[in-house]
């Protein structure tokens, strides 16, 4: 199993978050949305200009910009 950055994931690909390496406001915002290590995510799709990305996490869909997704490492299934 490979660990890649969330930005590199394809549409409909699943994975488990392994690390989020960002502090401060962004880190906190990600965590309060349920983005913590060990959580399963799925890429739902990207905006027409390929950025931001929409992901399915827990039971909700959240969106984040690609440069924010760069901080998230995912072990893909």
């Amino acid at each position: 199993m490979d660990t890649i950055c969330l930005r590199q994931m394809h549409k409909n690909q699943h994975g488990i978050i392994t690390a989020i390496s960002v502090a401060g406001e962004l880190g906190r915002r990600l965590r309060e949305m349920g983005l913590v290590p060990g959580t399963r995510i799925k890429v739902c799709g990207r905006a027409p200009l390929r950025d931001p990305v929409a992901i399915r996490i827990l039971d909700s869909t959240i969106t984040l910009r690609n440069n924010e997704a760069d901080h998230i490492l995912v072990e893909i299934e």
Binding site: E25, L26, R29, S60, T61, I62, T63, L64, R65, E68
Partner: peptide, 10 residues
């Protein structure tokens, strides 16, 4: 920029 992280509610 303020983090964009936002929910797409159903």
């Amino acid at each position: 920029p303020t983090p964009f992280v936002m929910e797409l509610p159903p």
